[in-house]
Write a protein that binds this DNA or RNA. Structure first.
Lengths: 225, 225
DNA sequence: GAATGTGAACTCCTTCACAGCA
DNA sequence: TGCTGTGAAGGAGTTCACATTC
């Protein structure tokens, strides 16, 4: 799991815990929407797909205080996790690369409900610049510094082909963006202060294929024809 | 990192190693395309964004034999990794959910070059059934058993909203699919023999926002206005 | 009685140090 | 001399057992 190795001031919450907090938050929101005000670690854990001990250990890192014999107050836990994750305001996001994936991401409604807001879409191809995508006008890469300064863009999403990924990443960093999520299956060289996460679709499929193959060790697909 | 916890017959290659092999494979293909026939662990590791010791340890799990003092034969290493990953044939993939993301995935050219082939696209919405997406006709969920049997579909990709994810997953499992990649931010209950990977875009952004916030502990975005 | 919070054991992964070989 | 392969050390994360509190 690619993550910038250097930064040490993670507010002393382990990286593995941070990566599970959003899931807990979603489960809590869903519970709150159903009128539930108190949950036990067992209930919340099963909704999130983890073990109860895992959940309690995770929550203990935020110093969160449930009530013994009772459980956690849903509203309070939502507040605490949101604060731990640095939410409470909408983070402005820029997406670079307006191919199929970039367009889909720009239109993805999930971001908005989770505290993120796509405020800029860019592409290096002049033929795409000026086009409308998800209610935004596609801008050229050269506009990045101005857009970052103007809109306070904090996170850049790379949806370019592998070739252009490093160049686009350099442009983001030069413009002052310090957090990048890339979908390009390429190794990126970045300054140590820039946080990087990579989502690699082909790798996920490869891992699945491996698991699948190691289960049924048949050369043929396990479907009786 | 969501992965089915049960299966033990991973061909004794650690999960963490498996998740890096595809990256090595890409770097090797790229090297081969440039006419390079031998690489050292240092060269390959920097192309893949890992440490040389990590790479050598990983390769040692496949019993791979490089040549001391020289390095690895590119062609041979490609063959060994491909075999370890169970490649060598194109895995047929079905994508369920033809919203923005599903369409983008169906059109994603990366899959084809990596040993995967999107052979079916489905949606539960009758209004979408029959439409053409990436050269395929959208089929109803009910066609899954027939499609799996006919096309040997081994991997299902879920690009549905969270609501429909469990239902769609059940349909895939009932049709005989034993490996699922889901983009829906929901916990899925699946039989233990089914492998599951989850890609959660919102979670990735949350983690980035956390890292970003813990670096510059300003309430404001770190751009001098 | 019921459920949280946490030290301690355990498992997994990464990194180091260096032996082994061309 | 140069680079691979690997046992051993170190670190991170998960699970267990149980003391603690309502």
């Amino acid at each position: 799991m690619p993550m910038t190795p250097s930064p040490s001031a993670h507010r002393d919450i382990p990286a593995a815990t941070v990566s599970r907090l959003p899931t807990y938050l979603r489960a809590l929101h869903s519970a709150a929407a159903r009128g539930i005000t108190t949950v036990s670690s067992g209930q919340l854990a099963s909704a999130a797909g983890v073990l109860p001990t895992q959940l309690r250990k995770d929550l203990s890192h935020l110093g969160s205080h449930g009530v013994r014999g009772v459980g956690y107050n849903v509203a309070r836990l939502i507040t605490e996790i949101a604060r731990a994750l640095g939410l409470g305001r909408a983070w402005p996001v820029a997406i670079v690369g307006m191919g199929n994936l970039g367009r889909a991401l720009a239109a993805y409604s999930g971001f908005g409900t989770e505290g993120f807001h796509v405020v800029a879409v860019l592409d290096r191809d002049p033929a795409l610049v000026g086009e409308q995508v998800a209610g935004l006008t596609v801008r050229p890469i050269e506009d990045l510094p101005a857009l970052v300064a103007e809109l306070g863009i904090a996170i850049g999403v790379l949806a370019t082909p592998s070739d252009g990924a490093q160049t686009a990443a350099d442009a983001l960093v030069a413009a002052g963006v310090e957090a990048i999520l890339t979908f390009a299956p390429a190794a990126l060289a970045l300054p140590p202060h820039v946080s990087l996460r990579r989502v690699d679709l082909a790798t996920e499929l490869h891992v699945l294929a491996f698991l699948r193959a190691s289960l049924s060790d048949l050369p043929d697909v396990g479907v009786a024809g």
